[in-house]
Amino acid sequence: MINISLATIVVLFLLANVAYFIVLPFEVATATSTIALDYGRQIAGPVGALFFALIVGISCLGALNSSLYTSSRLVVAAGEQGFLPRVSPILFLLRTAS
């Protein structure tokens, strides 16, 4: 399941990048730092730009959420294995016991 989802995401990202280059001129697509906004503006004007700004905002929140989740879980696991001080698993155990 994980392999299928990873392959799907890779293909979707590649297709999205091709879509960016279809809609935006090469010079704009390579120079801009907000490609989704420019893409939305080109497709549907200011409404499209606002829509894609919201999409990017939600995407950033999701990335932040997953980073916090995975990094803290791995710190706990590293503490359990002895790679890091054993304070982090103790905190985890205290939280689950309460």
Partner: peptide, 15 residues
Amino acid sequence: TAFKVIAIVAVFVAG
């Protein structure tokens, strides 16, 4: 994640 997948499919469809 679901929102992101829908959004990226929308980007491709718009293209």
